[in-house]
Write a protein that binds this DNA or RNA. Structure first.
Lengths: 158, 158
DNA sequence: TTTTGCTGGTTGCGCAAGCAAGCTTTCGGT
DNA sequence: ACCGAAAGCTTGCTTGCGCAACCAGCAAAA
C-alpha cells in the first residue's frame, strides 16, 4: 500500500511492486500447498529447514529463527508434525530445557514428494516471467535488502 | 523457504532473498503500525486506497481487489472503520446490492497523521540500505514480476 | 409478471499466528 | 551449596483472515 508522494518516482516504482509481491506471492504459492501435498507452507518450511541441517536436526529455537516464526507457533507446528510422524521431538541431552526436532524418514519422503510440484509452481509464478538478465541484475539487490532486513531488529531508532 | 537444488545458482540467489523479504518485510512494517498510529496496516491500506480514489469513494469489491484482501475480510474491516468514524458506508444509489466506502474527514486526518511515520519506517527498512543504482536496476524487474502475479489467476495450468 | 439465475455483500465458523504468562532447567554470583 | 536470574520452551487467550453458506437486489427469460 503506497506512500508515493514523498518517494521519488524511481523509489515509488521500486516500492509499489515490492509490497504487492510481498502480499500476493506467498498466497499464490500457499493456495496449492495443502491440496497438492497435505502440507501447509509452514510445514514445508520446517521440513526444508530440517533437511538442510546437519543430521537433519535443529533446536526448536533455531527452527523458529530460520522459518521466521514465533516460538509459540513453532512449538505447536512441531508438535503437530510429530503427531503425524514427519518429525521426531527429542529432549536435548546436554541441555535439559531445550528440545531438538529431527526429520524422520517419513518426513523426508513427504518433503521429496512435495518438492517437484512446489518447484513447478515457483517457476510458473516467478521465473517464467523473468529473463536471465532480470534475475542476474535484481538478485544481488534483493540479497542486500534481505540481509538488511535480517539485521534490523537491534534497537530500532526513529 | 527454499528449493534450490533444481534452481540454478542465479535463480536461487534471486529466489531465496525474495521469499525472505516477502515474509519479513510486511511484519517489520506492521509491528510499528498499531503502536504508532492506532491503525492496522490493513486499515492503512484501505484508507490509502480510498484517498487515491476519485471522490475518496470506492465500491467494497473494488476495495477488496486493490488491497488484495478477501471480500469477507474487507466487509468486516470497513464496518470496523465505519464504527470508528474513519470511513462512511453508503448504500449505492444505482445498485441496491452494492455499497460504497467513503473516506471521512477524520479518516483523512488520521491517514495524514500516520503517513510520515510510515514513510520513515519504509526508508529505514528498505531505501537506507540500497543505492540509487540498485533501485533503478531492480525496480523494472519487480514491476514485471508484480504485473505477472496480478495476471496469474485465470486458469492456472501446470 | 413471475421465475430463474447471477451479482454484491454479510455472517458462521475454523485455522494460523502472536502475545503474555507460566514452568522447568541451567547458570552466575555469593 | 544456595539463591536469584535468565534461557528454552509450552499453554491460554485473542486476533486476523479466508471459505462456505447465506441473503438481498437485479436481470433475463418465460
Amino acid at each position: 500500500m503506497g506512500d508515493l508522494a514523498a518517494l521519488d518516482p524511481e523509489e515509488a516504482a521500486f516500492w509499489r511492486p515490492l509490497i504487492r509481491i510481498a502480499i500476493v506471492l506467498p498466497r499464490a504459492l500457499e493456495d496449492h500447498f495443502l491440496p497438492d501435498t497435505g502440507l501447509t507452507s509452514t510445514d514445508y518450511g520446517v521440513l526444508v529447514a530440517l533437511s538442510e541441517a546437519p543430521d537433519h536436526l535443529l533446536r526448536i529455537s533455531a527452527l523458529a529463527a530460520t522459518t521466521a516464526l514465533s516460538l509459540s507457533r513453532i512449538s505447536r507446528v512441531v508438535d503437530d508434525l510429530a503427531r503425524r510422524g514427519l518429525v521426531e521431538k527429542r529432549r536435548c541431552a546436554e541441555d535439559g530445557r531445550a528440545s531438538n526436532a529431527v526429520l524422520t524418514d517419513a518426513g523426508l519422503v513427504r518433503l521429496e514428494a512435495a518438492y517437484p510440484g512446489h518447484l513447478a509452481r515457483v517457476r510458473a509464478a516467478v521465473f517464467d516471467h523473468l529473463s536471465a538478465e532480470d534475475i542476474r541484475t535484481a538478485g544481488p539487490v534483493l540479497a542486500r535488502l534481505a540481509a538488511a532486513l535480517e539485521a534490523t531488529p537491534p534497537t530500532d531508532d526513529c
